[in-house]
Amino acid sequence: MSASPYPPRGAAPIAIEAIGLEKSFVDPKRGVVKAVRGIDLDCRRGEIFGLLGPNGAGKTTTLRMLATILAPSAGTARIDGVDVARDPLEARRRLGFLSGSTGLYPRLSPRETLAYFGKLHGLTGDALDARIEELVDAFSMRDYADGRCEALSTGQKQKVSIARAVLHDPPALILDEPTTGLDILASSAMIDFVESRRSAGRCVLFSTHVLSEAERLCDRIGVIFHGRVLDVGTKDELRERTGKTWLEDVFKELVRRAGEDPDAAAARGRSV
């Protein structure tokens, strides 16, 4: 096993933690649907943790529970040590969340958006103004900071969304398929951003089904399938345990070991 360039596990405090996390929905047609079936994971400061799985595996539901958008049916989730069920407000204060369904208010400008979130995060006056200016410069938004968000390009919107998510400099950041729908340049900028958060000692948990992203970014990967985490480890650990080289094969092997036919599972995933 090659030496990891990342901090050893256990050295940094846990920023995102899930213990036996479950989520069930009542569907009028299908009855009780178990979307997440007891997920355990932990993500430390200075670490990028990738949740890898096909569509319908339970990635988004898990992340929504961690972000306090959905209530867990069972289990515990903590953000920077704060239980999301007991104190969702404090959990939200310590978390940045970005997904395909966290759009921007189209009739506000980027600056107004940041001011709105900043105020509600407790920033006021000069401190708020200074933070907004810092983010405007950091994400090169000055040219369009005062125009309406509805007029921005996809890449510009993504920058504003990231700025919104890190405005309060949260110790934990959750990104749900952050590069979906982005072009090459915008995707690259997003990847640079995620790496910069790790460098800043923050924790990043992100979901993806793009294997190359996971390969490049993640310190550790959790393979999620059918609402369960099949395995967690560094890329090398996963390769070693499965005897496969490519992440795609690693994933298929883990699914096969879980008693599923990977091709049938893939077809089922597409139909979810």
Binding site: I69, R93, G100, S101, T102, G103, Y105
Partner: peptide, 14 residues
Amino acid sequence: ERNTAETTLLLPVP
């Protein structure tokens, strides 16, 4: 429809 419902729910207020 505008995809901002979740954004609003992330606000650090009750």
